[in-house]
């Protein structure tokens, strides 16, 4: 009889030999997004139709800015990890590598753009004060 725990016997099985961290990261971001998604819809719905000046003031306030920043950051990290599964399922070799690289760069570009815009709006409000 081998003295081995069930965990030790199960670890590293499957063709990828890993994946628990990925699955757990998706679970955590999914739970966060169930709260952030309805809040983000409210924030955007209230912003549509505002003039440029009103929009800058609106996203200069803490609640719309924080909800938007959190939604875009958590959402795009969830997106990057989600597309990774899709890419792994449907593509092989060089196309897979290119698709993964594109997905990661695209996701972080969206995060950077949104956070930059929100930072400008927030700092703009402080400068006006």
């Amino acid at each position: 009889m081998r003295y081995i725990t069930p965990r030790k016997a199960a670890e590293g099985l499957g063709s990828a030999h890993e994946g628990t961290q990925h699955h757990w990261a998706m679970t955590v971001s999914a739970v966060a997004l169930t709260v952030l998604t309805p809040l983000f819809m409210i924030v955007v719905a209230r912003a549509i139709g505002l003039s440029q000046e009103q929009l800058l003031a609106y996203f200069g306030r803490p609640f719309p800015a924080l909800i938007t920043a959190l939604f875009v950051i958590v959402g795009m990290v969830h997106f990057i990890k989600g597309t990774r599964i899709m890419i792994d399922d449907y593509f092989q070799g060089g196309v897979r590598k290119a698709a993964i690289i594109f997905s990661v760069i695209f996701g972080w570009a969206v995060i950077a753009a949104a956070v930059y815009a929100l930072a400008r709006m927030g700092l703009g409000a402080i400068v006006v004060l």
């Binding site: 959402g75 969206v110 753009a113 949104a114 815009a117 709006m121």
Partner: peptide, 12 residues
Amino acid sequence: IVLITWWLVAAV
């Protein structure tokens, strides 16, 4: 998300 991000960046 691209449309909304473009909208936010355009505003600044």
